[in-house]
Each structure stands twice: as structure tokens, then as C-alpha cells.
Design a protein around this nucleic acid. Structure first.
Lengths: 147, 147
DNA sequence: CTAGTTGCAAAAAATTTGCAGTTGC
DNA sequence: GCAACTGCAAATTTTTTGCAACTAG
């Protein structure tokens, strides 16, 4: 299982009427194997390790197209840059360590349910949501990082 | 009570060792009276209605400084641009209408408590968090708006 | 007086776009 | 073959910064 997701990439493209081009294959592969949440520049950095000829414009175009199709999710954490993640996982929220920047995924059905209640109480239904909890380790105090 | 917050602005500056300059007064006043969450460009637009001489650089500098001091919170909703809100209110979360972009504030102690639990279960304590629920009206279906 | 602040313009960073050439289907 | 796609460079948009002039304390 070296390229476990290659089939899925082909399928995703076919489903959405997209051409299966070399740059797209590389970009989507990198995204699928990323467990963190890279921004466009970091994504481009990783992509060009595989194929140095791929332009950052293509990364942006691919990523925007996949977001429009609902294949990708764009997050914007506190640092302000857009960061991406494949949307094929089950939904989850994020714990973000303020000391290291590490992102830990979690899911709470209780919180999900409460959100439904709140939305309904206001006369709405939920389209999507995001919850980020910024944390530091319990025992040791963490340094604050600026910007 | 025409300028209800002017006293607070002076106090905030004094507390943080900042000079009470004219541009700062205007920028902070606009922020305090904003119930929505303007981005830097919109903030500048409002500020220059009061004093057209204020540069957008000053808006950015002021807003960044206030964020560092903890007076302001910077949010980044799904559209990607940084948007600001005074942090002196009690903490709350956001319902965002996807059809109009309107932001509705709410607060759920139950969700707050669950978050505490989750963080602790992972061995962390909460520094801050944000929860945004993107919603549309219950009865009528809403149009999707792109980027 | 003088260190903090500002406006301006230029720089940097992030993202999008026009266009001519390339490629998947 | 031809519309979709790409790379490149230029354009836009968003945010930051250098610097000389200004001003609150």
C-alpha cells in the first residue's frame, strides 16, 4: 500500500467531472497523506518536492476548486492564513496547542447535539460549524507566542 | 451619554501604558460601538468617516497592539480576512448566517463545560476557544454564496 | 524634551488572474 | 481536436514596515 489513495483521487475527479492531471494527482496525494493542516505555501513546498515544476497558482486553483466541490475544507486558525484538510474524514473539531502549534482532532457528540439545539432555538438549521479549543499542558505553564 | 466609552478608552490606554492619541480614540470608539465584526479595511472605512486623515497602517498597528494586550480579539471567519471585536464583553460564540453573513452572538454554559472536560481529558487546560456555527433559516432554503 | 505614535509610501505576504502553450479524454 | 488545465508573470488584495515628522505626557 504505497499510494493507498490513488484510486480515490481518480474517483473524486471522475465524480466531479475533473481531469486527472499530473499536478492534481500530486497535490491531492499530498493533501490526503497530510495529517496536519498545511497552508497553501506549505502545501506548495511539499508538492514541489515531488514535482518541482508545479506552480503555486496551480495549488491555489486546485485547492479552491476542491473546496467548491466540497472535497476539501478550508480552515483559518488564529494565525490568519488559510489551511486545508480533506473533508472525507468523519467530522471532527480541533484542539490546538498554543505552545507547539500541534493540532489534535477530537469529536464530541454531546457538543454536536447542543449545537443543534442552539441553532434550532434561534430558528436555524446548521450548515456547518467549527470549534477550536486553544490549550496548553496542564502541569507546566506554556510560553505565549506572538503574532 | 453620547460617547459612553470614552472613559474606558482612557482607562485602557493608561492600564497598558499607551498614549491616548486622537487616532487611537477614534479607532477604539468605532470598535466599541461596532456590534458586528469588521475587518481592517471596513474598520478603516468607518474610522475615516470620523477622521479622514487616519491611515490604514495606523488601524493595523492599533488593532495588532490591542490584540497583543488582550483588549481585542481577532477572529477569522470562513471568508479568510481577519476581523476584530473588543474583548471586554463576556465571552460568547458565534452563529453565522450563510445567506446574509450576519453574525449572532450566543453563549452556552453546557458547551463551555464540555470543552473543559475534553481539554482536561487530553491533559490540557484551555487558553481560549472559538466556536462558530454556520446556519441557514429553518423553513426557507438559503442560497449558497461563493467565497 | 523625547520616546511613543503617526502618515506616507514602499515592501512583503497571500491570493487571484490573463494568456499563450500543453494535455487529458 | 478541443476544452480543460497549467505555468508564468503580472495584478490584486491584505498586512507590515522604514522613516521623517509630530505630539502626548
Amino acid at each position: 500500500m504505497n499510494t493507498p489513495a490513488i484510486i480515490d483521487i481518480a474517483r473524486i475527479c471522475k465524480e466531479h467531472g475533473l481531469r486527472l492531471t499530473a499536478p492534481r494527482k500530486v497535490i491531492m496525494q499530498v493533501l490526503l497523506k497530510s495529517t496536519d493542516h498545511p497552508d497553501a505555501v506549505e502545501l506548495h513546498r511539499r508538492v514541489r518536492k515531488i514535482d518541482p515544476g508545479i506552480a503555486i497558482a496551480t495549488v491555489y486553483r486546485t485547492v479552491n476548486m476542491l473546496r467548491d466541490k466540497g472535497v476539501l475544507e478550508r480552515h483559518t486558525f488564529a494565525d490568519g492564513r488559510a489551511r486545508y484538510e480533506t473533508a472525507d474524514h468523519e467530522h471532527h473539531d480541533h484542539l490546538v496547542r498554543v505552545d507547539t502549534g500541534d493540532v489534535i482532532e477530537f469529536r464530541s457528540d454531546e457538543i454536536e447535539r447542543l449545537q443543534e439545539e442552539i441553532a434550532r432555538a434561534h430558528g436555524f438549521e446548521i450548515v456547518s460549524h467549527r470549534l477550536e479549543i486553544y490549550v496548553k499542558p496542564l502541569k507546566k505553564a506554556a510560553k505565549r507566542s506572538r503574532r
